[in-house]
Structure formats: structure tokens, C-alpha cells
Amino acid sequence: MVFWQRRTAATRGIERASMIRTVLAWAVALFVSFPFLYLATSGFKTEVEAPKMPPAFVPVPESLSGFPLAYTPTLENYKLILAGDFMPYFINSAIATLVSTLIVLLLATPAAYALTLPQTTGKRNVLFFLISTRFLPAVGVIIPIFLATRFLGLLDNVLALIILYTAMNLPIAVWMMRSFFQDLPADVLDAGRMDGAGTIQELILIALPMIKNGVLATAFLAIIFAWNEFLLALTLTTTKAATVPLYMISFMSAQGLWYAKMSAAGTLAALPVVILGWFGQKWLVRGLSMGAVK
């Protein structure tokens, strides 16, 4: 009797709690997404409408304009930006991101594999050295990097960004790939005990196909970091090799009619990685914890 009553009360409590939790979760999610949802919305407004308060959220056809919180969406800003010079920046970003990611994979995969093999010595030192380079502030070495880039004739050249993004992403990629290799059955790794060409063959033919997800997850993370990188791009590129963040800094200060265009440009610039992230959520855990959490 008592037992039965307790159960119902508990069940009812859980139901109520889960209702509250659902509402709360949605409220928090909308609150957190306000800055970017509003930015995306403003990109579809006219320059006159965009900075107006109260914030207009509801897209309506022109005949209904004037209602509170409603605006008439327009593609004008996007047309302006795409017809303007946004695309070259976008293409540079894409090249720097994709090529560096490809090189990262080519270099990190064998390294991570070897760092999994039991006979490799000094693994701890190598792994810790790699990860410690991520602690160093890039701005601390920016002048030598600038001067070296100049010496090599690579200023305003996407190749400079490719090299730097490769070095920037390698440590995380090695850590991450290694965590996937470690999950492989022991006999696969045992086969790798053979030296030399045997190891490489083993890696390509047997181990690699088994960690397809790991390769994708690593690529995914390298793309996020390279696409969003700002300081190196700002310092080393000018026009020919300038990437999306350079396009964005012209919107840093308020001027004239700029709010809607800034919003549209920001949305376009953030979109590729955001979309990738939405689809690649499950890989994020592994990636961001650099393989520490499985």
C-alpha cells in the first residue's frame, strides 16, 4: 500500500520534472542562440529596418509589414555581398582550410599509428611536446613568423596559411587519431610490429579502413580551427590570399548603413563550419577532448 503510493508520487514527480526540464531546456537554448539567430535574421532585413528596436523576428510578406515584431525579408544584402568581393575571401578560406586539413591527415595518420605501436619509444615525450605547443600564444611568435614568411616570399600567399594551419592542427590531430588507433583490436596492432614497409602497408590496408570515423572526426576538427583562425590571417595576408576573417573586420566599427550587411556577411562566414558542426556533433566529443574521452 505504502509502496504503491510512493511509486505514483514518484512517477508524477518525474513527469512534472521532465515537463519543467523540457521547457527550461528550450528556454535556455533560445536564450543562448539569440545572438546568432538575431544576426542571421538581421541579414534578411533592409539597412533601415535592421537596427530598429523592438527586435523584429517574424518574417512576413510585404502586405503585412508594420506589425509588431514582424519584418519583410529581403535577399538584397546577400546579393550585394555575393556580387561584391566576398567570394575570393571565401575561396581563400576554403583552400587554406581544406588543403591544410588534407596535409594534417597525411602527416598525423602515420604518426598517430606509430605512437600507438608498443615498440615505439619516447611516446610520452613526443605526445606531451606536441600538445604543449598548443599552450603557446601565437601572438608571441608573430613577428618572427611574419619575417620568415617575408623571407620566403610567401606574404599574401595562401601557402603560408596552409603551412601554419598544418602545424597548428597537427598536435590535436595526432592525439585524436591515436585514440582511435588505440581502440583497434590488439592483433591489428601486433601485426604492426613488423618494421618498415610492412608497417605502412599494415596501416593503409588494415588499420586505416577500421578507423574511418576517426579520420572524419579529425578532419572535421581541423577544419573548424583552420576556418575560424584570425590572427595569422590578419597578419600575413592582404588581398590575393585574404580569408573570410579579413572580410569581416571591415564591419568592426559602426558606420553608415552597415548593420544588415554585417549581419548577412557574418552569417555567410560562419555558416560552413556551423553546418558541418550540426552534422558532425557526434565527432565533437572525441575531437575536443583530443581523444581523452572515448
Binding site: 619575417l147 573586420i249 571591415s250
Partner: peptide, 23 residues
């Protein structure tokens, strides 16, 4: 090729370019 950048940043870029003779 025309690069437009906010004042602080363009000053930084131009001064770095001019003083290091980077062309």
C-alpha cells in the same frame, strides 16, 4: 587590388609593411 581595413588595423599592416620593407 584594393584592400579596405579599419584604421587601427590598416595602420598596423601598413606600418609593418613599410618599416620591414616587405613590398
Amino acid at each position: 587590388e584594393f584592400q579596405l581595413v579599419p584604421e587601427n588595423e590598416v595602420r598596423a599592416k601598413i606600418t609593418t609593411d613599410v618599416t620591414t620593407q616587405s613590398g
